[in-house]
């Protein structure tokens, strides 16, 4: 099983439901911090917003793209960052992490951030979403999306909704040329 995320750029209306819900549900312990995510100057959650204001304005939601060849897993000295065998997701085993921040540096997507109290790297899926996914359900960002712009599922299963969407649409993966093989599909049309 290889679980993947899908984000439909043609449908997203930038409502921030996923961005705020991710923070509120996964990291509620820091939700009232003056600066919950100083590294990104952002809220304490796993989804960043990137907007291009020039040309035809465009939007990306950036979070862990769950590479099949993840640079963060490559650099982790303790195998704390690893590809989960059951799900194919890139996860962090916090008990092994020593906090060297190599994974944060290594991620070409800027998907990781330092938790302000544990000083350990955080990434998608957050702790609550991990359990939701283990329970066989779709993570919070997918379940809250009002615009049908997100999906999540097994790309090894040709009948999963995500596989069907990928097969039917023009999609791309972020910074594909880097060879990281992200399991995150951006639908473009």
């Amino acid at each position: 099983m290889r679980l993947a995320y899908l984000w439909d750029s043609t449908k997203c209306i930038a409502c921030m439901a996923c961005v705020v819900s991710c923070a509120g549900s996964n990291y509620s312990e820091i939700m009232r911090f003056e600066e919950p995510n100083p590294m990104m100057k952002w809220l304490g959650g796993n989804i960043r917003v990137v907007i291009r204001e020039v040309g035809r304005p465009e939007l990306r939601l950036v979070s862990c793209f769950h590479c099949d060849k993840p640079p963060c897993v490559l650099v982790c000295p303790t195998r704390a960052s690893h590809i989960d065998r059951d799900t194919g997701l890139v996860l962090l085993d916090e008990t092994k992490c020593i906090g060297c921040k190599a994974c944060i540096v290594a991620c070409p997507y800027g998907a990781r951030w330092l938790h302000p109290t544990t000083l350990l790297p955080e990434k998608c899926p957050g702790p609550v979403c991990i359990d939701i996914i283990r329970g066989g359900r779709k993570p919070i960002c997918v379940s809250v999306c009002p615009a049908n712009a997100r999906d999540f599922g097994d790309i090894d299963d040709p009948n999963s909704s995500i596989s069907i969407k990928i097969s039917k649409s023009k999609s791309e993966r972020p910074l594909e040329l880097l060879g990281t093989e992200p399991k995150y599909f951006i639908v473009k049309g």
Binding site: C15, M16, A17, V19, V20, S21, G24, S25, S28, M31, V128, I140, S143, V144, P146
Partner: peptide, 21 residues
């Protein structure tokens, strides 16, 4: 936590309701 009611004729939600917490 918040999530939309599936099947509701006018289901949520957005960045506003996500911040109700």
């Amino acid at each position: 936590g918040v999530r939309p009611i599936l099947g509701h004729p006018q289901p949520g939600l957005c960045g506003r309701s996500s911040s109700l917490k």
